Every structure is written in C-alpha cells, then in structure tokens.
Amino acid sequence: MRKSWAEYKREARKRERVRQLALERALNASVFKEAFSEYCRENKRTGFGAHFLILGSKWWDFGQDDGIEPLDPSEIDEDDQAAAFNSLGKAELVLSLLEDVVATLAHDISDFKRSEIEARIEEVKKSGLTGPNSKAALDELELLKKMRHNLNKRVRRTLPSTRAAG
C-alpha cells in the first residue's frame, strides 16, 4: 500500500530529529568542555533542593487520601499546606513544584551552554580568522552563533489543563 504524504512527512521529521540529536551529542564533547558540575559549583547554583524539602515523604503516592507531609514544614507556606490537605491538593502542589524544578533546571542548563558557547566563540576569535584555516574557523564561528541563537529561543510544551474553575 502506498504511503500518504503525511506519512512521508512524519518519517522525514523523525529523521531530522534523530539527526539533530546526533549532532547535539557530537557537540557535547567539542563545545561543552567544562563539566556541568564544575559550573554549578563555581556559580553557586542552588538547584531545587528546597522543592524536595516541601515534597517530603511519599509525595508520589496518591492512593491514600492524605495530604502533603513536608520534610521541612518551614519551607511550605500556610496557603499551600492548607490546599494540600487531601490527595488532589497534594497532586496539584506536586505538579506546581515539579514545574518549578523543570524550569530551574532548564534555566541552569541553558546558562551553562550559553557560557560555554561564548567561551568557544572567544577562542575562535582569538585564534584568528585569517590564514589557511580561515574557512573552517568562519564555519565554526557561524555554527556557534547559530547555537547561541537557538538557546535564546523560548520553548513551549503543552500540558493538559488542570484548572477547572469556571
């Protein structure tokens, strides 16, 4: 049976995603030379430890109709504690906290990659853009600038709505 245009297009998009992923992995070794752990240590990235102090024990268990049990009650404000008295409130609070964790981690990774790309751009500029390797240096500079531009883009991920208020 013949493939439809949509099937060809889906396969082409999948091949492009795989190609982009392979390119990203190859760049990880050549562009991102400093370890992410060093970057976090040097820049005093706090991460998201406070979020997990709020989540506490059994935050993933919604089978019982109990509320949130934070490890450190001083980390959670009274309104959130009052709203998370049952399994639905706990699930909504967990969702909110995990969204914050994802945003924090994405911001940290983006800042790290941006700083590494900037360092590689400076290295290319210092090495000089003239001479026998000038074409390769210009190509590398263009690739690095494109990567920097892609990091400045915002990405939207769609989630199902959890707000039922009219």
Rank of each mutant, 00 (worst) to 15 (best):
S87L: 06
E38P: 06
R148Q: 13
L138H: 02
G166T: 09
R13S: 06
E78P: 08
L98R: 09
P132C: 12
L55W: 01
K126Q: 14
P160S: 15
E38A: 15
D100I: 02
K126N: 14
L143P: 01
A22F: 06
D108I: 04
E118G: 02
T162P: 05
G89L: 08
T158D: 03
R45T: 05
D79I: 14
F85N: 01
R154P: 02
G131W: 06
S134W: 08
I109A: 09
M147R: 11
A50T: 04
G128L: 09
D61I: 06
A6R: 10
I117Q: 00
S87A: 14
I76N: 00
R157F: 08
G49R: 09
L95N: 04
N28Q: 11
W59V: 05
L105S: 04
F112T: 03
Q20P: 05
R148K: 08
R2T: 10
R154G: 05
A84Q: 01
R163C: 10
G49C: 12
F85W: 03
R120G: 01
R19P: 00
D61V: 07
F48Y: 07
E118A: 12
E78R: 14
G49K: 11
L23I: 06
D66K: 13
R10C: 07
S161V: 10
I76D: 00
Y39C: 14
L98E: 07
H149F: 14
I121W: 01
E7C: 06
L105E: 05
K9P: 01
G131L: 08
I109S: 07
N28H: 11
I54Y: 00
L71R: 04
A119L: 11
T162N: 11
V18A: 08
S57F: 04
N28D: 10
V18I: 13
E16T: 11
S127P: 01
D111A: 15
D139S: 12
E75L: 08
K33N: 03
P132D: 14
A82D: 08
E116G: 01
A50R: 02
H149G: 07
L144V: 13
V101S: 03
E7A: 08
L129I: 14
V124W: 04
D65Y: 06
A165H: 07
T162E: 10
R13F: 05
E123H: 13
N43L: 15
E69V: 11
S57M: 10
L97H: 07
S127N: 09
F112L: 05
E123F: 13
K153A: 14
S30T: 11
G56R: 00
K153G: 07
H107R: 07
E75P: 00
R25L: 10
R19Y: 03
S4C: 03
K33Y: 04
E99D: 13
D100M: 03
E38W: 12
Q81T: 04
S4N: 03
D79F: 12
L88F: 06
F62H: 06
R45Y: 10
I76Y: 00
